[in-house]
Design a protein around this nucleic acid. Sequence first.
RNA 1: GGAAAGAUGCCGGAGUGGUCGAACGGGCUCGCCUGGAAAGCGAGUGUGCCCUCACGGGUACCGAGGGUUCGAAUCCCUCUCUUUCCGCCA
Length: 418
Amino acid sequence: MLDQKFVRDNLEAVIQNCDLKNVHIDLEEYSTKEQRRREIIQSTQELRNKRNTVSQEIALAKKNGQNADAIIADMRSVATQIKEEEVELKEIEDYLQDILLHIPNMLHESVPHGKTEDENIEIRRHGDTTVNVEGVDHVELCSRHKLVDFARAAKISGSGFAVYTGKGAQLERALINYMLDYNRDAGYTEVMTPQLVNTEAMTGTGQLPKFEEDLYKCAHDDLYLIPTAEVSITNLHAQETLSFDQVPTRYTGFSSCFRREAGSYGKETRGLHRLHQFHKVELVSFTRPEESYDELERMVSHVESLLKSLNIPYRVILLCSGDTTFGSAKTYDIEAWSPIEQRWLEISSCSNLTDYQARRAGIRYKPQSNSKPEFVHTLNGSSLATPRLMISLLENNQKSFGIEIPEVLHSYISFKEV
RNA sequence: GGAAAGAUGCCGGAGUGGUCGAACGGGCUCGCCUGGAAAGCGAGUGUGCCCUCACGGGUACCGAGGGUUCGAAUCCCUCUCUUUCCGCCA
């Protein structure tokens, strides 16, 4: 959420920014109501001031045994007036709040302008993309080696789910453990958080109210299944003020991720490409505002080092304005190479949300031990989402005899090849 | 799921309708004292919003939301959470 005052003072820039992100909002009515809001507040405050003053006079009169009936009768109309103004104010503030929650975060100046993903910019790439182009794809590999059973997953849950079996299940578990350890060793504190969260948490990180239809909801209990651990980890510090020495704070956590993926059909959804439930290890940082863009670079290189250690060819993409998500000021995607499909697969997304989530969720810190609290900057990134990692890993490591397990995973798994 | 108790500022803890943004204690910050420290003494110490160039002023906030009243931390209703006991359960 943007600061209300910022929107008031920078209306043109905010409108332009909405355009750049392909978000269409009418801010003309907002502007009018914003002004009306301040008028009412001024008027109501004056009335309250009067009420407070006179109430004390009444108390004093009663104390002295004087009759205060006339003033009380007078104050009755003031009370009514206050109530009327409060009703209008509430209506206006609800409206303004709703609009504010639908305004995207301001983009960083370094983000290239563009409408679609075609205008994203490749920053760098690493690894050999010429090996194993002659092999078979991950769906065939999964079936041949009985690593994933899509048919039975469909039987029990429908399309878009996976049952990992045998060595497939072990490999999945090994990857998760390896990534968690790798992140922990780099200074991220490991957390294991709830996968069902309430409306406040979903609003705090920005999934609600705009993206409700992408979420699974448990209507009975008013809880949502998280689409990413970013939600529960970022909200760990919602409505808190961190002390100066708690910033930066870095977390890593594993979770299942649940996404309805309404409207996704066709080739993009084949095999492990797009699932309703998948596994992901997440990184979340809370930083000082002046350090958040350094933190973003740091996070990206950390994820890169993880991919290097697994010997996965990848490239780093800077998303253009139109492709940068709602709450993000700047996002890098990291894509792993699929040698069989001959294309790059989005496997991680690292974003600086600046103070956008912090303001929604009320996450502050004190720059110094005795200074006023300010909003932190929050960042998150995947390290990594397993399904497409699995695709790339299986395809890149297939040999004549089967699949070779990368060396860094050997201590996490009971076999060296499939 | 049933029963009971509770939720107040950074922490502990008063306060049951009228100068209560909130006593008191602790913590913290600054100053004095000291060779230095401790102890002691003095001052200060929340957040949001509105008005103001500013100084400053106003207003709201005592778990959340409603209600009663001229006036609510205090009374009423609903909800959430915590603790204890019972039930159920991996």
